[in-house]
């Protein structure tokens, strides 16, 4: 069987020279102070994994671990700085379901816009329009401008669009928690359907119950690297253990700071750092392929 996604030594580097707030002045002054500080950082490094059709992968890890960056790279939004990504099949690239929405267009207009953004032929979208509208189940609002929608309605419409485009590979970033109870029930079912169609899913969530329920495989990421890869409940347990340890270290550091043994300037580093030893041992815990 052929793979759905394969990455080899994937790395994504962000340049700190150009960020949202750079101006010409800043980058000029940067030119004269070449040596001053780190000019880039790796959001992902040495990420290698293979995902087969039928697999549902849950990506977990603390904030800033590189989960969203990995998802963006799989979707083709970000190009790798090193290594290779191979994706076999149509990817639903609507990571955050409401990103493509336009406030002035109606619900139907947004369905067509989302389809056009993802590069789906408009005739195909017109065919699917009714089923998307039915699944979203937001009544007459479907013809009203999006700015009149409640956040729940937006979430419903977004989920309906992203899953109705019939992707071979579905990428989801923290989108499953929205909507009311009845809709959650339905979306449960829909994810199950996508999975049953032997298609691959990659989902990022901080809600561990979603990971254990929907994923049949999980990857734990920390500081841009894969720390563990295996059965969801085992990886989730490891993640919990690590978070617990981080929490303890943070409160210890805080206590030390209060007692005046450390200077406050170093606080941030202490709070986020985990000794490398844990990483190594976690690597060893990783189940065999």
């Amino acid at each position: 069987m052929t793979f759905a996604i394969q990455t080899h030594d994937l790395g994504v580097r962000y340049s700190l020279r150009f960020t949202k707030k750079t101006s010409i002045r800043r980058s000029f002054s940067g030119m004269f102070r070449r040596s001053g500080g780190e000019r880039s950082f790796w959001a992902l490094r040495e990420v290698s994994f293979r995902l087969d059709p039928g697999e549902s992968l849950g990506l977990i890890g603390p904030n800033g671990a590189g989960k969203s960056t990995l998802l963006q790279t799989l979707a083709g939004i970000i190009m790798p700085s090193e290594g290779v990504v191979e994706v076999n099949g149509h990817v639903s690239t609507l990571l955050h379901l409401q990103a493509g929405f336009d406030q002035e267009l109606s619900g139907r207009g947004n369905i067509m816009l989302a389809g056009a953004l993802m590069g789906i032929d408009h005739r195909v979208m017109e065919e699917r329009e009714e089923s998307i509208v039915t699944f979203a189940d937001i009544g007459a609002f479907i013809d009203a401008p999006l700015r009149t929608y409640s956040s729940g309605m937006r979430a419903k419409l977004g989920f309906s669009i992203a899953t109705a485009v019939d992707p071979d590979i579905l990428l989801l970033d923290e989108v499953l928690q929205t909507g009311d109870e009845a809709f959650r029930e339905k979306s449960h079912q829909r994810i199950g359907e996508v999975l049953a169609a032997a298609k691959a899913v990659v989902l990022v969530s901080h809600d561990m119950s979603w990971i254990t329920e929907f994923a049949n495989r999980a990857i734990l990421m920390e500081r841009g690297r894969i720390v563990a890869d295996g059965k969801p409940d085992e990886v989730v347990a490891l993640h919990m253990e690590h978070s617990e340890r981080r929490k303890m270290m943070r409160s210890e550091a805080l206590a030390e700071m209060k007692s005046g043994r450390r200077r406050p300037g170093r606080r941030k580093e202490i709070a986020t750092d985990l000794p490398d030893r844990t990483m190594v041992s976690a690597r060893r815990e990783r189940p065999g392929p």
Binding site: A4, T73, V84, N88, G89, H90
Partner: peptide, 15 residues
């Protein structure tokens, strides 16, 4: 059945 034969494959490399 080979999925790759009908679905588009995308290959992105830093090189």
């Amino acid at each position: 059945m080979d999925i790759a034969s009908e679905a588009p494959a995308s290959f992105r490399s830093s090189a």
